[in-house]
Amino acid sequence: MSEVTVSEAGPRGMVTIRGDLGEIGRIVAGIAGTAVPATGRVESAGARAFAWMSPDEALLMLPPDELAEVLGALNAALAEHHALAVDVSDARVIFRLNGPGWRDVLARLTPADLRPAAFGAGVFRRTRLAQVAAAFWLPEAQVAELLCFRSVGDYVRDLLENAAAAGPIGPRPD
């Protein structure tokens, strides 16, 4: 019996944004319909999410059927700026951890601080999952989404399923 189900989130449009977010953040957020994410955070609006990746990189996630329109609008709006918006939907894969034990599953695999005070809603944590780079955040209560390169997707799925099968960490309350 597992408290967490691991599943692939299905296709999602992903646009990588390179540039000075202080300069272009508002433009991208205006097109995406979200707020501008602060350092290390993600801002969501409906099915769209705008995540801070590094001081000069952000990732916009959105439903695949909205991708072409948003990418066109971004490229038009960023034409006069030193910035880049590129469709990287095929580069990465998203997994969903659904259930109250998601924190235990991640804690088995990553050195990141997962205490609620350090990792709560709105935090976008890029870190290491066993041997590969990954990022995770909390789109809704009891659900964690995890992003990794598609080339290591099979490895990450095995990691997550194995960690989920092991049950909760620590002594049981009863």
Binding site: T39, G40, W52, S54, P55, P111, A112, D113, T127, R128
Partner: peptide, 12 residues
Amino acid sequence: PYCGVAACETEL
């Protein structure tokens, strides 16, 4: 100093 994350040695 860029993202404010307390990163352990294995993330670096």
